[in-house]
Design a protein around this nucleic acid. Structure first.
Lengths: 338, 338
DNA sequence: TCAAACTCTTTAAACGTTTTCGCTTCATTG
DNA sequence: CAATGAAGCGAAAACGTTTAAAGAGTTTGA
């Protein structure tokens, strides 16, 4: 590889001058700056990021940790979308991303150790399921600049999807269609789940709709089989719900299947609603009524905040950023009015 | 951060000895080795990967390039799954992965430049769509160790899903069910597509089934809308096909929708088959008959080959590795016999 | 005219490693 | 007992950068 030294030799100047010229410092003449930059280009020079990082203590690398048990984050559309927009945003600022995981090499590292080893400038923590993970906790205690998505905790920057507004909007929409018997199969316990569940109940109360415990069942995210069983269970009530809210769009497929098996059709006999608004939800028939989470903004916002934190333009204690979703009105919720 | 120097001071030895002790060299006594390693652990030492890389010319970083136009690779289950298993495999050998993209920082880099800048030890090229990309070509001409997935070219290691065997098996299965009027909506032009298309035709010939050009339509991968239109088109033939093979599982949803719109049911009226065998295919109703591509092995195999290449245990000209898929028999293809 | 100030450049140290080579010891051998 | 060799350790250079400080040369101001 051609290094700064080679350029220096070619231009007849010192390596210091070359370095400064390339980094556009003020204390080097325009003419030398130009010749240096030109020969650098001509010789196919590219800075050695390791050497630079060693000196500047900046790797321009951001760690991404999927905090999860099932190691399925990447294959799930919601998280993949968030990551995708995060990636685009940080890349435009010159950062690359590194996946942080517990198993690097023979000698296992904790996520924290992995971050230290790679000297990431910051880290994004994506909360796929609940934060039981010990390694994640250790990392969060450290003072590496970090921002988490979908999880709020003290002294940490976070970007969250506004599940409160989302769930409220969804329930209001469904109730507006005349439904009063609304079941909710919610996902694995997590921050997100509890907010949604709480809001679900609160909204019912506010709308003067009775909360029935038999209509509230704990399910699992992205699990069609589990959802299928629970849908059947909730439909075995003597007084059936007219609408069922599922943990997410993918799980909704389980509901559709269960209903079909029971000889019920959506939305004529039973209405359903999903959550997430992934692409899939809009190609299913009937098109799913769901809350679209703004993955684009979630990722981008997280990236911007993290970079600002790294540059010390903001501090840890800034308020969480809440990203609103939007209702995607499909055809899976029947209008019971008239 | 605690460095090798600190440990040296603490142990009363030189940094050279510490380095050797930590790397388990032979020319350092067992006792010092032990004390060094212990104090290193006690002091919370972690090697600085940048410094190490600078010296050894090994970053333990592998670049991953999704060669694509639509920038959607990550959000598609098939590629995400391949990446996931690739990641696991390389991680167990101590490598991290870096996404290679064309847009890093203000000053745009080509993929090749990005690789040089980050000094990746090797690179994985995942062929999402066709290889028209100029940047990808430049990268492939370089002599960075690389392996590509689903694309074969001269002097390059590659791991490919056995689309020939897959398509053959699928067609034979369908024909075995008594179908002779089989349509095939194939995806965007690419290596993969042409192999599938060729095999489709060859297999029909071998089975003495007439190839009808009106049953062969070019569609697009992962595009339900497009698939929907093409399905309608192919069904407008006076002599309809009894079975339609779709470009992939996701696109198959478009077919299901089109058929439903036409008042036709799967598989009673028309049979369909997908390709990929993603999770989705097995939760749809009817369960899709499809070819499951072994993403697990594709990723793992690519990782193993790449690492072997980096370690110079194999050379560039080794034969491509072909990974067999398997037929997932769903309920979307009707048995026409008897 | 001379010091001061400015502009541009270079010297040299530093970042945290790895690794070659030489230096001590000390045991083994003939 | 001298010669040889092995084992263990350290000094120092190197990887490719950045940057503080000093130096050289030119311009300015009184």
């Amino acid at each position: 590889m051609v290094s700064i030294k080679d350029i220096a030799a070619a231009c007849g100047v010192s390596i210091a001058t070359v370095s400064k010229a390339l980094n556009d410092h003020k204390d080097v003449s325009e003419t030398t700056k130009l010749t240096v930059q030109e020969t650098a280009k001509k010789m196919g020079y590219f800075p050695n990021s390791q050497a630079r990082a060693l000196k500047t203590n900046r790797t321009y690398n951001i760690g991404v940790l999927f905090s999860e048990q099932t190691n399925s984050g990447l294959t799930q559309n919601y998280f993949a979308s968030v990551l995708d927009s995060f990636k685009k945003e940080v890349e435009s600022a010159g950062y690359d991303i590194t996946f942080i995981s517990g198993n690097i090499g023979e000698r296992k590292m904790t996520p924290y150790e992995h971050c230290m080893y790679r000297n990431v400038d910051g880290v994004l923590i994506v909360s796929v399921d609940d934060f039981v993970d010990k390694g994640t906790v250790e990392l969060m205690k450290s003072n590496i600049p970090m921002v988490s998505i979908d999880h709020i905790s003290e002294n940490h920057l976070s970007v969250v999807s506004d599940n409160e507004a989302g769930m409220r909007q969804l329930v209001e929409y469904i109730a507006g269609k005349g439904h009063t018997k609304i079941a909710y199969i919610y996902g694995d316990s997590s921050d997100v789940t509890s907010i949604r569940l709480r809001t679900f109940k609160e909204t019912l109360v506010r709308l003067n709709i009775k909360i029935r415990s038999e209509f509230l069942l704990q399910g699992r995210y992205h699990d069609t089989k589990c959802t299928e069983l629970l849908v059947k269970q909730v439909l075995s009530c003597s007084d059936r719900p007219t609408c069922i809210i599922l943990p997410d769009d993918f799980a909704a497929i389980g509901a559709i299947n269960a209903l079909e098996e029971l000889g019920l059709s959506v939305p004529e006999d039973i209405s359903i609603a999903g959550y997430d608004g992934i692409v899939l939800s809009q190609v299913l028939r009937p098109k799913l009524t769901t809350i679209r989470q703004d993955t684009e903004r979630l990722g981008a916002e997280a990236a911007k905040r993290l970079i600002a934190l790294i540059n010390k333009e903001i501090t840890n204690d800034s308020a969480p950023v809440s990203v609103k979703g939007s209702l995607l009105e499909g055809a899976s919720v029947k209008n019971l009015n008239r």
